[in-house]
Design a binder for these strands. Structure first.
Lengths: 133, 133
DNA sequence: TCCTGTGTACTATCGCACTAGTACACTAGT
DNA sequence: ACTAGTGTACTAGTGCGATAGTACACAGGA
């Protein structure tokens, strides 16, 4: 069963964290078409969060066309076309993990690794946007 | 002069985004000891944000020992010991950029790249925490 | 039919991020 | 002295995320 995590220090609203995790799961193929999400009450109990907050996330997923509720049963994911092929995903993840490891061996603290990654990704996005303009 | 950016879609409070950017700048060596940050009014004008919000970010930086205000002059960064050596930083950034490029060439959309990176980093943290326990 | 579990709807309340506007103390330059 | 520019402090108000509690409609199984 799909499991959610929360990062209370990130400043990101709880319901958005849940939405993003489902979105990521779909993009990477961790969630497949028709798969059931944990029920509102299960998530609320597991994360010690108000059921209304989880419901808000599920409503947002429904609005985005990523999930659909079935009365009396639960909420089910709606499949996505453009998923990353499994082979590609595994290979890229392995290379990225190797990079993280080498960064760690070079003396970078986890926060520094995150800072470097964030900066590079932001720069790539900016560059792409500049290119398009 | 150091420049700030804002991502309104992230859900992260404005003042936290500013704090994080200075923190990243220090971790990666983009900001050096004694360097002046843009003034509260400059940042507020550039980002179209209330001066109080910028002031809150600077107050938080002061509390964290990362910056110090000088009355009538501005706010100045306080240097950090454990910065990433420039050579290491350049090398790691280049390898990471190469990875991002190959991911893009493999057909991954920017969101999918971000999703993959986030997942791998979260897994690494979880693994590290499990190891320590 | 009854009971359970599901998602949903609603009201009320609290806290915090953010804005608006004003005022003050300090420093540097004229 | 005076002026301009700095960070800071304060009050008031707005919007939204989150909580608490209750109630309802639906599907499935005993």
């Amino acid at each position: 069963m799909f499991a959610f995590r929360l990062d209370s220090r990130s400043g990101v609203p709880t319901y958005l964290q849940l939405v993003e995790q489902v979105r990521r799961g779909l993009l990477l193929g961790y969630l497949v078409d028709g798969e059931q999400l944990p029920t509102v009450r299960e998530v609320a109990a597991a994360l010690v969060v108000n059921p209304n907050t989880v419901a808000k996330a599920y409503r947002e997923l429904e609005r985005a066309g990523l999930a659909a509720p079935r009365a009396g049963q639960g909420t089910f994911v709606i499949g996505n076309d453009d998923q990353v092929p499994h082979g590609v995903h595994v290979k890229l993840a392995a290379r990225l993990r190797a990079w993280v490891r080498s960064a760690h061996e070079a003396g970078l603290a986890p926060e520094q690794v995150r800072a470097l990654v964030t900066t590079v990704l932001d720069d790539e996005n900016t560059a792409a946007r500049t290119e398009a303009a």
